[in-house]
């Protein structure tokens, strides 16, 4: 990870820049309107920051999953399969996406700024449930990544085009779900549950009375996603053919 030091700083900087561009976009929107489907600028920044934090954690610890397609195509999983350690963890830990560090730094600042201004009644329970929701959100995000990357075991193509398309959908999770059409809302809630990586957890934080169920459903969705993601990945590993004869 620290083999290439200039690369480290460039990637962190790239992550920072990307987040700032997103924030500038959000600012431009709110320069025109007071609220977006009931979301004030502060709340929208909190949502955006939460989603970015979740999305930044994933490259930091699980970016190796993106390499699945290449490893399958090249037959480079041979050694991973003869080590006494889960293949998925060996692959996910094989690379650290340092742009995630930039994401996480900016996202933390956004969350901090928004929390200081937002109207939230804090209690120990809020902190506890908030932490559970954050962990659940990261789990969902990583599970979707694992499942979509595992498709490479069937496709055997050297790139992750499918996984990329699926994960691009995840960027929609940074905005209030209600701004999308019914079909897209359904997809983001049920099919690929990106709505649970930010929208529902933040909604609970802002209005626990109305969104009380989000605190219960989000961890359940996370557990379900994790089981499914790991299952799909392992099903894929069994199809692995290596390379050569």
């Amino acid at each position: 990870m620290m083999e290439y030091e200039a690369d480290f700083w460039l990637l962190v900087l790239a992550g920072l820049l990307q987040q700032l561009v997103g924030l500038a976009f959000l600012g431009a929107v709110f320069a025109q309107v007071q609220a977006l489907h009931g979301w004030t600028f502060t709340e929208a920044v909190l949502l955006y920051g939460f989603a970015s934090f979740v999305f930044g954690m994933s490259p930091l610890f699980f970016d190796g999953l993106w390499r699945t397609a290449w490893l399958v195509n090249q037959g480079d999983l041979d050694y991973a399969l003869v080590r006494p350690y889960p293949v998925m963890l060996q692959v996910s830990g094989s690379y650290v996406g340092l742009q995630g560090a930039g994401d996480v730094v900016v996202a933390t600042c956004m969350i901090g700024w928004a929390l200081s201004r937002a109207d939230i009644s804090w209690s120990p329970l809020t902190v506890l449930v908030g932490a559970v929701l954050l962990v659940s959100a990261v789990t969902i995000r990583v599970s979707v990544l694992a499942a979509s990357c595992a498709i490479s075991f069937w496709l055997q193509a050297p790139h992750s085009g499918f996984a990329f398309a699926i994960n691009q959908l995840g960027t929609l999770g940074r905005y209030p779900l209600t701004i999308f059409g019914v079909a897209l809302r359904g997809v983001l809630t049920v099919v690929i549950p990106f709505a649970f990586t930010a929208y529902f957890p933040v909604s609970w934080l802002l209005d626990p009375g109305r969104y009380w169920w989000a605190a219960i459903v989000t961890p359940l969705v996370a557990a379900y996603s994790l089981i499914l993601g790991v299952r799909i990945y392992h099903r894929g590993v069994r199809r692995y053919e290596s390379a050569g004869h």
Binding site: D78, L81, V82, R83, P84, Y85, R238, Y240, E241, S242
Partner: peptide, 30 residues
């Protein structure tokens, strides 16, 4: 690759010290 559990056999059986390399992958890897 079949004996080490890297790939799964189409048919037939492999036992290494009583373990099936692809089913008991981690125990076999040790």
């Amino acid at each position: 690759k079949l004996l080490t559990g890297i790939i799964v056999p189409t048919s037939g059986e492999v036992r290494v010290a009583g373990l099936s390399p692809h089913r008991d992958r981690i125990a076999n890897a040790r």
